[in-house]
Amino acid sequence: MNKVSPRMALPALLFAAAQCVSVPSVYAAELSVTLAIPKLDVAEYHKPYVAIWIENNSTKAVTNLAVWYDADMRNNEGEKWLKDMRQWWRRSGRTLQMPVDGVTGATKGPGEHSLQLRFGTQPLHELDEGDYTLRAEAAREVGGREVLNLPFSWPLNSSANDANRTKGGGISVTQSGTEELGSVTLRIQP
């Protein structure tokens, strides 16, 4: 790599930052979500449909991280209940062609499930500077529906993240559901 004079380095860096680096770098931040599906003592149990996505502060869905539904049913019948995840459906689902590579998957039973994603790598593309909400929504047949909202700001060093700061400059945000979702934790490490 050529040496750049200190004078040039700062504008060049700023320019790169403004472009919001779409090139994956070895320094790309990592995002993880752990989501608990509660064990329910009910007569008829169906695994919930779950969607996890990121919205910007104008409630536009930016990135779908995961959608778990009955993708393997005959004649795509499992798509019939996608709209029961009402918020996800209006923000994103209704304009998607299902299934989505790297996003959709089979429903999951009670227990803790996790996602590990790297910014700049599908399906998690780079974010522009701003305030975001990671949203997790669950809807269960003959059951209820619940949506949890986990706010964060980008870039990570934004002062809005200070309350959720972890060692090493990352953040950790947790919300707990009461019906269809257990604890949902978002962690981002630089």
Partner: peptide
Amino acid sequence: TVLSGENR
């Protein structure tokens, strides 16, 4: 009024 899926 709000539906998803096929053959609905």
